[in-house]
């Protein structure tokens, strides 16, 4: 279980609180107006921004004080998920060894991860030569190889067209099966597509996760307002 316990985030005038849990292996969508703090919440869970108060608990351990690299968390950011000066294989290989001194066995693992996302044979290319979809797949291959149980998706596919984005979300649901996923999205249909739960961020509060069907069938006033339903 991933628990945000009385978490409070403050930055200037900005405030956000969260006090809830999601079960292991579930996919939770986070929606809400821009500027509401969706990305900030993920930053705090990922360790890039410190909360003012509260705890982040994963399997009974407080992970809130760990640096990002030590947390059981992988993040796919909105952009810059690949280093443009390294090859695709090197980018993926960073998941295994940050100094990139890979053994033959580890190199095989990298190839396998690339094959798994449909990028077999792309290892020697630089990210600049990949299409948007291929770059997303390469980043996903790295996350696969990192083998961390919590995955944060900060709208990594938002620059892709609708069909490609749907395809990537399908791939995420398939390949990351069994991991605990929190995904920020602007598109409610994305949430419906792969998430089991929905968190609405509004007026400084990240609401308790609601089962996805219930969330859309009987939306809270905040969600109804966000979706434009009266």
């Amino acid at each position: 279980m991933l628990t945000l316990e009385k978490l409070r985030i403050e930055q200037g005038d900005f405030r956000l609180t969260a006090d809830w849990s999601v079960p292991e292996g579930s996919i939770t969508a986070i929606v809400g107006p821009s500027g509401g703090g969706k990305s900030t919440l993920l930053s705090v869970i990922g360790g890039y921004f410190a909360a003012t108060a509260g705890r982040i608990i994963w399997q009974a351990a407080d992970i809130g004080a760990l640096p990002p690299g030590r947390r059981p968390v992988s993040t796919l950011f909105q952009d810059n998920n690949l280093f443009p000066h390294l090859t695709v294989a090197q980018n993926v290989g960073l998941a295994l060894r940050p100094d990139l001194r890979l053994t033959e066995e580890e190199k095989t693992q990298v190839e396998a991860a690339l094959a798994e996302v449909g990028l077999a044979g792309f290892g020697a290319r630089k990210p600049g030569t990949l299409s948007g979809g291929q770059a997303s797949r390469a980043a996903l291959a790295r996350v696969l190889l990192q083998s961390r149980p919590i995955i944060l998706l900060d709208e990594p596919f938002s620059a892709l067209g609708p069909a490609l984005r749907r395809e990537m979300l399908g791939l995420v649901a398939e390949k990351l099966w069994g991991r605990t996923v929190l995904m920020v999205t602007h598109d409610p249909s994305d949430a419906r597509e792969i998430a089991q739960r929905l968190v609405m961020i509004d007026s400084g509060v990240a609401s308790v996760p609601v089962p996805i069907v219930e969330a859309f069938d009987q939306p809270s006033p905040a969600l109804a307002g966000y979706l434009g339903q009266k």
């Binding site: 930053s43 990922g46 890039y48 640096p67 690299g69 992988s74 090197q90 960073l94 940050p98 990139l100």
Partner: peptide
């Protein structure tokens, strides 16, 4: 952030990033 999440510190950060 990407470097931090990959544990890219010290000399490796200098050399690779």
């Amino acid at each position: 952030r990407l470097a931090a999440s990959l544990g890219l510190f010290g000399r490796a950060r200098l050399r690779l990033l």
